[in-house]
Each structure stands twice: as C-alpha cells, then as structure tokens.
Amino acid sequence: MIVDLPNTTTNEVSKRLVVARGESGAVALGRVLTLILVTDEDGANDAIGTANDASREHPSRVLVIVRGSTDGDSRLDAQIRVGGDAGASEVIVLRLFGELANHGSALVTPLLLPDAPVVVWWAGEPPADPASERIGTMATRRIVDTAKATDPAEALRQLSRVAAPGTTDLSWSRLTRWRALLAAALDQPPYEEVTSAVVRGASDKPSVELMAAWLALALNCPVTVEHTEPGTGMVGVSLTRASGEISIVREDGTVATMTQPGQPVRRVALHRRSDVECLTEELRRLDPDELFTDVLTKGMPLVQGVSA
C-alpha cells in the first residue's frame, strides 16, 4: 500500500503511518532498527529497492531522505509504503526542497522507532565526515559507499582521515568472501609466515586498497597493489610463503582459481557481491567494526607503492 502526501508536515506523516499500518494489517511492531537512507533523486529507486531486500533479514523502518533542489521555497513531499510494497519494512520517503533540504535530521527525529538502533546509509556520494554530520550523530552505525564517490580513491583517503567507530564502507563488506577464503587457506597446514603479498584490482575500486591495508595490518609484511583497468573489480590476491605462493585469481568476476603449492588447482565460485548482500551484512552487526577502523587508520599507511 502506497500513500502519497504532497506538500505535507512530519506530524501528518506520523499520523498517516499509524493509519496505513492498521489498514494494511501490518500492525506487528517487529521492526528491529531504523535505517535512514540519504540519497538524491537519481539514486533513490535503486537504493530503496536495496533497503527493502535487506529488510527481509532485518525488519526495519526505512526513512528515505531525498534531497531535491535547494532553490525555491521549502517543501516536504512524503510517501508512505507499507505491506507488500515495502518488503519486510515500512518505507517513508521524504522529498525535501528549498532550505529544508539542508535540515534532513530535523525531519527524521519524530519518525525514528522508539528505543531501536539507528543506522544511516549514504547511498551516493559520501559526506566529508560522516560522524560529525548532524544526521550521522543520531546514528549508532554510519554506512558509506566510497565506490559510489566521484573520486573513489580520494573518498577512501578522506574516510581514513575521519575514521570513527561505527563508520563503515560497503567497499569493505564487498571483500568478506575474499577475506574468508584467504583466512581459510591459512587455517590449513603448512603453517608458515607470509613474507609478502600482492593485491591486484581495478584502480576505481576502494576495495582493492582496503584488501591491501587489511593484509598489511594483519600479516605485517610488504604488500603491493597492482592496478588493473577500471571496471574489473578485485582481480587477485597472492600471498608468498616459504613453500610457495597461495593465489586467488578472479578474471571474469564470477569464478576464481585458487592455487596452492602441493595442491591441485581449485576453482571456486566467487561472484561479485550485490549491494543487498553487503547492506544485509552491515546491518547484522550494529556494534562498531573496530577492525575496519584499524584497517583504515593503521593499515592504509603500511601499504607499499602502487604500481600500475
């Protein structure tokens, strides 16, 4: 069920939400968190779809702040979606115009779920400092996506300068399966130190730098980044040990080849993670990801030169 409320007030939105929930039968208060989604008009539909899908694992109230043009008079257009049109969540889209577009945080306060964690997700260009943005201070978790920035590399460097507990990057969750495979490889004998590592991947993917930073931090060995063409994503990681090299290479974006000394070459399905998978993973833990903060602040400076 979709209710459109053009040129409205937050009070009206609150009231209509209660009515809409009652009418559509979605009365259970099983929402576990409020997800605030900050986006612009272009990215709004994709981002709302992603949030809806993620809500299947984490029932939530999604407040979407769509920042429109700041020219002209202040106006609020709202839309409420509950029931089948909102996954397992209830979605409130707030379109802000004029001066109001700069005051999103004031609008969402009355609409937050009582006594439930708040997560902010900037689906597009990340803010310069998520933790000190007014809307960021309301949240226990702040999620950005540096890969969506106009200059992803700079966005990641900026994020490392303002790293704060509770701030994470979808570029980090994109790496989880890669990291799990690498960790599982080191679970098996022979137990040898890793003496150097090489990470290969697209120059436009902050994930590549994060992988290198993580390895450098954890393994305390020289880690080099080799950049590939933009659009190729993560391509490969190799770890050098006394007995030889462990390498995982994914050329086609779906299946990786894993090579280890003394073992047959193995193929493993390793598709690129969708935003839904990444957001779902982010919402699974609402406490700060301390390791990620360390990777940003301590790991990134350790990464050796970047070769093209």
């Binding site: 990291r179 690498l182 960790a183 080191l186 679970d187 004998p189 137990y191 040898e192 130190e193 890793v194 003496t195 390895l215 954890a218 393994l219 305390n220 060995c221 020289p222 390791l291």
Partner: peptide
C-alpha cells in the same frame, strides 16, 4: 619488519 606468526592455532587473518 618480521611477519606475523602463523601456526595451527594462530591465524593472523582471523581477528
């Protein structure tokens, strides 16, 4: 720098 130790019970990639 000396690389982080790896053994059956210590995997530096698991934190």
């Amino acid at each position: 720098m000396s690389p982080t130790r790896v053994s059956a019970s210590e995997n530096p990639l698991r934190d």
